[in-house]
Structure formats: structure tokens, C-alpha cells
């Protein structure tokens, strides 16, 4: 590479951060695009930069409707062309996804201090409300001696909701705030590889994630188990479940399958 080309190359490397976010005018962008056609190191630099921007940007994931619309669109294409094709296609027209409305948002539910009977009733009402419960599970919940033995006068019931990876899983975490034990009941969890287990995580207010043990769901994706926290549950702000190696992980290594808040304003 001669001196002039090297200078241009260095200049372009410095312009890449602005190019990556579309902050350059059209002329400069075209100049860089032409350079990228012939310069593998700059292409590598750009792709690394694009990924870094994705990592640095903090926002919640796209709504599930986006994936649903995408899959519907691609499935429609698949019906007319059995395989992906390189043939020219018209500019894709996105299926409009309705803007998010307040009802699209899952809001943390405030826990209530509940007596025994109300705790059970609330657990069932919440789960019915989440739309992922069934009668057999209600019977299991009613009949489980571990539940009767666990819930006290100050028990709190926290709903757990699914992530994009696990619809329509749902569940509850029943806690005694000053206790380090809780009862986790979940249903509809997705199947995980045979060499993995479900691991429960507790999150502190500063973002630390603490393992609260390993679980195994039955073949219906149902979990009903006591969990043991290292400290009283009032020290944590959220709980979640992920699929991890059978021996467990020191921190979550996959996206979370199910989660919920443990509000601190108690």
C-alpha cells in the first residue's frame, strides 16, 4: 500500500464510527463504501464496530409481534418459492406492527401480604390471568403438602412471566420476605437439551446474579420446587430461570426463560 493509499485508509478508519451510524453525508458515505469494497481490514473494522454499537446500546428487545410478522411474511414467501432464493426480489415491505400500547407492556405487579388461603387463591388467580394454567396443575397446587407447609401469614406471591424464548410459560414465586426459602411453581417451560438443567437466578439491586439452585422440569415443562437463597429474599429485586450446563453456571449463559420482579417496597 503506498503512502497516499495508507493515508486514505487511516482517514477512513477514523470515519467509520460516523459511517456506522449513518452520520456522514452521502458523498462521504459513498467514498467509504467504495473503499470497503477493496479493503478487508476496514470491512472487519466496520463489522466489529457495528456489533460494538449493538452491545453498547441498552434497550429492551423488539416486541414478539415483530418476529411473528416476520415469520408470517417469510412463510408466505416460502409457499410461493420452496427455498430461499438469490433471484431479484422487490424491496421488502414490512408488515406493519402496531405501535406498542400500554397494555402491551408487562408491568411489575405489586405483591401483597397474604394469609395462607389468600396466598393460594391469589396464586391461582394470577396464573389463570396469565393464561397458561390448567386444571390439573391447580389440583397439584392444591394438593401439594409443600405449599401448605410453606406459606405463612406474610407470604408474598410474585408472578413470573415468559420471555420470547419460552411462550407461553408462566409461574409464581411464593416467598416469605424474611426467609431465605421460596416456592417456585412454573408451567409451560420449553424442553431443554438433555445435558442441561434449569438454573434459578436471583438479582440484586446492583445487577449481581446469584444462583439459587438447579431444577428439572417434568416432561410437561412443569416445575414445582423449593429454592434456597443465600440470603433472605428481601435482598433481591428479581428472579429468573435459564437453561444451563447440568453442573450449573456461575452466571447466566443463555437468555432467560422466565422471570419476575421481587419489589423492594415492602
Amino acid at each position: 500500500m503506498n503512502g497516499e493509499a495508507t493515508t486514505a485508509h487511516e482517514d477512513i478508519l477514523e470515519m467509520l464510527p460516523d459511517y456506522a451510524v449513518g452520520a456522514l453525508d452521502e458523498g462521504a458515505s459513498e467514498l467509504i463504501a467504495r473503499h470497503l469494497d477493496d479493503c478487508a481490514p476496514c470491512r472487519d473494522e466496520l463489522t466489529a464496530l457495528l456489533e460494538m454499537i449493538g452491545l453498547l446500546t441498552v434497550t429492551v428487545p423488539p416486541r414478539p409481534e415483530v418476529k411473528a410478522a416476520l415469520i408470517a411474511r417469510v412463510a408466505a414467501e416460502l409457499r410461493t418459492a420452496p427455498a430461499a432464493t438469490t433471484s431479484p426480489a422487490p424491496d421488502p415491505t414490512p408488515i406493519e406492527v402496531a405501535p406498542a400500547s400500554p397494555s402491551d407492556r408487562v408491568r411489575p405487579m405489586r405483591p401483597a401480604r397474604l394469609p395462607l388461603w389468600a396466598g393460594l387463591a391469589a396464586a391461582l388467580i394470577l396464573l389463570v390471568g396469565l393464561g397458561a394454567w390448567n386444571l390439573s396443575l391447580q389440583r397439584q397446587l392444591d394438593e401439594r403438602p409443600s405449599v401448605d407447609g410453606f406459606i405463612g401469614d406474610t407470604a408474598e406471591v410474585h408472578p413470573l412471566t415468559d420471555s420470547q424464548l419460552s411462550p407461553p410459560a408462566s409461574g409464581v414465586l411464593i416467598v416469605e420476605p424474611e426467609s431465605d426459602e421460596a416456592l417456585l411453581i412454573a408451567h409451560g417451560l420449553p424442553a431443554i437439551p438433555a445435558d442441561q438443567r434449569l438454573q434459578v437466578w436471583l438479582f440484586t439491586a446492583t445487577g449481581e446474579r446469584i444462583s439459587a439452585g438447579l431444577l428439572t422440569a417434568n416432561q410437561d415443562g412443569h416445575v414445582d420446587s423449593r429454592i434456597q437463597a443465600p440470603a433472605p429474599l428481601e435482598n433481591y429485586v428479581a428472579v429468573a430461570i435459564s437453561a444451563e450446563a447440568a453442573a450449573g453456571s456461575s452466571s447466566p449463559t443463555t437468555q432467560l426463560l422466565l422471570g419476575g420482579w421481587l419489589p423492594a417496597d415492602r
Binding site: R107, P108, A238, A240, G259
Partner: peptide
């Protein structure tokens, strides 16, 4: 408010 507590908790970890 977020699409799901699991995603938000994961975002907090990140």
C-alpha cells in the same frame, strides 16, 4: 416497564 421481566433482568446483567 418492559416486554418481560426476564428480558429486563437480562438487560440489567448486560
Amino acid at each position: 416497564p418492559a416486554p418481560g421481566p426476564a428480558e429486563a433482568a437480562w438487560a440489567a446483567v448486560r
